[in-house]
Design a protein around this nucleic acid. Structure first.
Lengths: 168, 168
DNA sequence: CGGGGAATATTGCTGTGGCTATAGTTGCTC
DNA sequence: GAGCAACTATAGCCACAGCAATATTCCCCG
């Protein structure tokens, strides 16, 4: 039934997009692993490094990545074992703990980023105008927020959004 | 060390892109699962449905998706159990077996595609000109081929590329 | 106070997928 | 024709991540 749906050019576009998406994922993953990182580890490292003090509470880290809280627990376990991260208790709330990037972690990230940039340049150069790229990233971000809210700002109703809560 | 790398606008762009990429993946995955499919299951279904006879050898299916051959074995196991696919022995080569989409599988794909198209439209509409989209998809495909060759054509040196080898 | 509900991190269980070994098949060479 | 290398699919073992349950801590309302 419905044998020729795929002659529809829109369906072909879906195929191309899925294929392209898978290809980009594979490319990124390969580049991460050249530097001994998995995709989620890179994501974690980048999120932490973009945060004040290079640290984030476990819950916030989960909200800002594609991981669940239990996933964050285990990734941080591994990365702590590998010396890229360090756990730090929050003195003002003994439930919370912070994941902090170690110097080794920052160094690893620094080593990984140039190749990453190279992929992106090689990918976009001559294909998109900067304005179009900006618009596309905005569109993507909006789509993302519709599904995974709280990625760009603090996620909980507590307020470590600006400052990590005093000495925390 | 190197505390302020992330003030570099290029680094910000990397962050946005990674975030956008993760967001798009999450959006797609959520839509797949609305219809009881995982991302790889959708990929498999689409690949098979785009192939002549709605079928593909296990090896070729692996080459055209982001899965290994053992991964394909297990996904086909599940989808066969769910009635979306069917295994079919190849009479001319008793090593090979085909995965064929069942009517139920085609129906499932047909039900999933409209929502998928809706996401893509909602995502691109007003953001990109058709020419730019085409150029970007081409660029993505080139990047993909550099890492995961053999995705768009037959992958082995045998020749089921045009016709499924006689009665196969 | 103090008790109940919310929040936080972790652990057990399960499902999934990659890598490697394995068994069966094919084709090529001598 | 026999032997051998390549190919195909699968099974075993491992790593990884989500969901649900759990323990601890916090906060608020009485």
């Amino acid at each position: 039934m419905n044998e020729n749906v795929f002659d529809d050019p829109r369906i072909t576009a879906v195929g191309l997009l899925v294929e392209a998406h898978a290809g980009l994922t594979a490319r990124f993953t390969a580049q991460y692993e050249e530097h001994g990182l998995s995709a989620v580890e890179f994501e974690v490292l980048m999120r932490l490094a973009r945060s004040p003090g290079n640290q984030l509470r476990m819950t916030d880290l989960a909200a800002q990545t594609s991981l669940s809280t239990s996933g964050v627990t285990r990734v941080v376990d591994r990365m702590e074992r590998d010396g890229l991260l360090r756990r730090r208790a929050c003195p003002s709330d003994r439930r919370s703990s912070y994941a902090v990037v170690t110097p080794a972690g920052m160094q690893r990230l620094d080593r990984t980023l140039p190749g990453h940039l190279r992929i992106i340049e090689q990918w976009f150069t001559g294909q998109l105008e900067p304005d179009t790229l900006a618009a596309m990233l905005d569109g993507l971000r909006r789509v993302r927020d519709a599904v995974h809210p709280g990625a760009t700002a603090g996620s909980t109703d507590q307020a470590p959004t600006d400052e990590p809560a005093a000495a925390c």
